[in-house]
Amino acid sequence: MRELIELRGVTKEYRDGPAVHNLDLSFPEGQTTALIGPSGCGKSTILRLILGLVAPTSGQVLFDGEPVMPDTEIEVRRAAGYVIQEGGLFPHLTAGENVRLMARHLGRPVAETDKRVQELLELTHLSGDTMRRYPGELSGGQRQRVGLIRALMLQPKALLLDEPLGALDPMVRAGLQTDLKDIFRKLGQTVVLVTHDMGEAAYLGDQIVLMREGQIVQQGALEDFQRRPADPFVTEFLSAQRGLVAL
């Protein structure tokens, strides 16, 4: 299986210390990789490194075989969809303007854009009139779905999700999880999902990467984590996630 994204010996140091430390990690094409770990473990930094939003202190990030550098970062960002908690929608634009922003900016034909919006509305189970509203008029779940449409508009090679469901209440969250799994499968999408919820990671992820203090503790399926924990921290982390037993 081809690796779409690769991190090779990447270290990123912030002023108050390292966020990721000498990390080797790859993301296979067409699969969903869930990055999980406690706050500050460096999982969100990995998404920022992939998008060139922060530059590695040392090491190299490859996206589709090309190193992510200041002169390639715009192309990488357009080839990747990014959704953050609360969706990151621009409040001064309607939902429709938000999702069409890049297509318009790049001068894509309107008919083609409209068709894509229509497809994605169906895929995300949103009604057309949502597109006429401003983000402030939408519910949290609707905002995340619109954010997802915006990220998928340009048919990205990879979809990067940073705790996309973190701010939603449990019912909405469960509904979206189901829809996400369905969407990823239908599109054969390469996905990197950052979450702190092991249930979500196990449900959506083909592989799970557990991180602590900028390094990988264990990588694999939930079953491996439960049966063959690589470190006492794995067991500790799992036992802190109540409700996992039900899975």
């Binding site: 715009i74 908690q85 621009f90 922003l101």
Partner: peptide
């Protein structure tokens, strides 16, 4: 967050 979203879109 909004600043980063604008950058991440590839604008």
């Amino acid at each position: 967050g909004l600043r980063e979203s604008a950058a991440a879109l590839g604008l």
